[in-house]
Design a protein around this nucleic acid. Structure first.
Length: 631
RNA sequence: GGCUCCGUGGCGCAAUUGUAUAGCGCAUCAGAUUUCGGCUCUGAGGGUUGGGGGUUAGAAUCCCUCCGGGGUCACCA
């Protein structure tokens, strides 16, 4: 309707006002509740052009529109706002259109190119945690939203299965794992630990041992034992020690940290881990076998976690397979003169002209860094999907700078599609008790959290739910739907780029802006419709204000999907869905349905309810949340 | 320090393509519903949108500046 009015105004503007108006000066908004009307045209821009008062302009436009558009029943003017009321006929037709459209709100898949949505992208040295939950739910949801907007979407992840961090776990396992009576080191089978948890355990062991060794080194240095250290290191150390003299406490602490850093680099453990990485890159068979075995454990563990999360992927990329491509790209950049080589053989790009730093692309020893592999992966993807229209990278906001650099480097290399890449950056998830820190053991494990939330859903639902006649399997499915629904909704309702607070108890509350509150409303409509039986026509029903208000909310759904797609924001869907449910609860409270005597009115209300239910189910699906029939 | 993101009632959030009296939930208080699932609904109190300045007919929203917080500035990923 807005478009129709806009079209008419644009076409007729010269005849009406004597001037041509611009498209952007035609602005609409939904009429506020406290005023009469359905859509509102903001007339300030016209008043300026017409050099008349906003009120005169509004009246003039209102009269003109009413004469030319039959669906406009009336209008009123408040200050510079033209409030337009649409006819009952219009709204009833709207309802009919919504009711008969099974894919209401979704755009058909069209000729748009493929969009890759990357999310999760874990390291294979640690189990997934709360932050990964936000990541996975976000990525999955954005992928679904883009599909609903008619895009071809490939869900993908890059698995960081290579690098010094993996070598750390491998080394620690080789060196510190106890050996059982069969002569085996610890495995998921003989410890019954989830694979990702076991490997994560050894990553922690590495860190502990490594810090221990660094401490010992510092102690040695403090008693002037410098055997076996290079002159450069000794010199650095003495420089830091001298600098400490006479400094304030804070400055001294900073210097101590630098000394620690220096010591860490001199540990045998780190040196061995680095050696291992070089061996791995040289495809040393023994190292490669260990690597693939331990990664296999991790993948088995992740698989279980992803299933519990309810997310999936269409295509996987492994860093171990793409990082070499990155090296090729680096050579290409060198020959194009975009990059340059330093004396030690390391390769850099100079971005100072763009207000950024110089950035390392390849180490002096020829091994790849993070940026190398991301460049390679990007290129690989373009090869796999020649119609690639864009890549959405779901990665935490601590990497904002990295992606800025990545996109810029790609552009400098002459890849025009770099412009279509988008970093879906999201903020950290805090707990009521404060920040998550792996060192302090306050990290919330993803598996544990999901189990906990499903357990709470069970306790709550068993106490108050409608579970008669359900088998225990059905009940388990239901508890999972409610618990996970609450968790997903809670993490998705907040604007992605904002840092957010996660309160586990609040997520499965049945009141307020929560997933279960919405699921409950759906279950109630479902039960209402089951009791109602047959629904016939509603042609003769009078459209009351309550009905109209609810149809208006339903009619917004397609616009919400569109906006959520262009803003990559599931939060818009979540908040809309909540608004819809509140509007429905109000409706439900104020008009009778099953006991309404006028059959036509009864059926009109039931048809509205049926569509509210439909939109709830579909919009929750875009968030990856299921809608149980009973709860 | 440079760059960057954020700052909205006690708490958690919405509105950020400028626009009418800044919405909502939790919590608090007062009510409604003997009938469709009371896990609902209605109402009240509570805000100088971090401070200041600017642009505009109009600013939570745009610009400048200051304050506060996060992130980042690694041959980690």
């Amino acid at each position: 309707m807005e478009n129709k009015i806009k079209q008419l105004l644009l076409e007729q503007s010269e005849q009406l006002f004597g001037i041509k108006i611009e498209e952007k000066s035609v602005q609409f908004q939904l009429t506020r509740k406290e005023f009469e009307g359905d859509v509102t045209l903001v007339v300030f821009p016209f008043a300026k052009l017409l050099k008349s008062s906003p009120i005169d302009a509004a009246n003039q436009i209102g009269e003109f529109l009413k004469q030319h558009i039959s669906e406009i029943a009336s209008y009123n003017v408040v200050q510079g706002f033209l409030n337009i009321s649409l006819s009952s006929e219009y709204w009833k037709n709207k309802l009919f259109a919504i009711d008969t459209d099974n894919s209401f709100g979704r755009k058909k898949a069209d000729s748009k190119g493929t969009i890759l949505v990357e999310y999760s992208s874990p390291n294979t040295n640690k189990p997934l945690h709360l932050g990964h939950l936000r990541n996975n739910f976000l990525g999955y949801s954005v992928a679904e939203i883009l599909k609903a907007n008619g895009h071809k979407v490939i869900k993908t992840q890059i698995i960081n299965d290579r690098g010094i961090h993996i070598c750390k776990s491998m080394l620690a396992w080789e060196r510190f794992s106890p050996v059982n009576i069969n002569g085996e080191r610890e495995t998921p089978e003989n410890t019954s630990l989830k694979g990702d948890k076991l490997v994560g355990k050894y990553y922690v062991v590495f860190d502990q041992e490594f810090n221990k060794e660094a401490k010992e080194l510092i102690a040695k240095w403090e008693s002037n034992e410098f055997d076996g250290f290079s002159a450069h290191v000794v010199e650095q150390y003495q420089k830091f020690v001298e600098a400490k003299i006479g400094k304030e406490e804070k400055a001294q602490a900073d210097l101590d940290a630098k000394i620690k850093e220096l010591a860490k680099n001199e540990t045998s453990l780190l040196r061995d881990a680095k050696e291992m990485l070089v061996k791995w890159e040289a495809r040393d068979p023994q190292t490669y076998l260990l690597w693939s075995t331990m990664n296999g454990w991790v993948y088995d563990g992740f698989k279980t976690t992803y299933e519990a999360m309810g997310v999936n992927f269409d295509r996987l990329y492994y860093e171990s397979e793409t990082y070499l491509l990155g090296k090729d790209l680096v050579s290409e950049g060198l020959s194009k003169g975009v990059f340059y080589k330093k004396e030690d053989g390391s390769v850099w790009v100079d971005l100072t002209a763009d207000g950024m730093d110089e950035k390392l692309l390849l180490r002096g020893d020829g091994t790849a860094v993070y940026m190398t592999q991301d460049l390679g992966t990007a290129l690989d993807r373009k090869k796999d999907y020649p119609d690639l229209e864009g890549v959405v990278y779901t990665v935490g906001n601590e990497q904002d700078y990295h992606f800025k650099v990545l996109f810029l480097v790609l552009k400098k290399l002459g890849y025009s599609w770099a412009d279509k890449c988008f970093h879906l950056s999201y903020g950290m998830v805090d707990l009521p008790s404060g920040k998550m820190k792996s060192r302090e053991g306050t990290v919330v494990d993803a598996d544990e959290l999901m189990t906990e939330v499903v357990q709470s859903a069970k306790e709550m639902t068993s106490e108050r739910g409608h579970l008669e006649g359900m088998s225990s399997e059905q009940k388990d499915v239901l508890f999972k739907q409610i618990g996970m629904g609450g968790l997903k909704y809670y993490l998705l309702k907040v604007d992605p780029k904002k840092r957010m607070m996660f309160n586990p108890e609040e997520s499965i509350e049945l009141t307020g802006n929560t997933g279960p509150f919405i699921q409950y409303a759906h279950a109630r409509i479902n039960s209402l419709l089951a009791k109602a039986g047959e629904i016939n026509g509603y042609d003769t029903a009078l459209l009351g204000n309550e009905e109209k208000e609810l149809i208006k909310v339903l009619a917004q759904y397609p616009a919400v999907i569109h906006e959520a797609g262009s803003a990559y924001s599931p939060a818009l869907i979540a908040n809309y869905c909540y608004e819809l449910v509140k509007a429905f609860n109000h409706f439900y409270q104020s008009v009778p349905m099953l006991i309404e005597e006028d059959k036509s009115v009864r059926d009109l209300r039931l048809v509205i309810s049926r569509n509210v239910s439909k939109v709830i189910v579909n919009s929750l699906l875009l968030l990856g949340v299921e809608s149980p029939q009973k709860m």
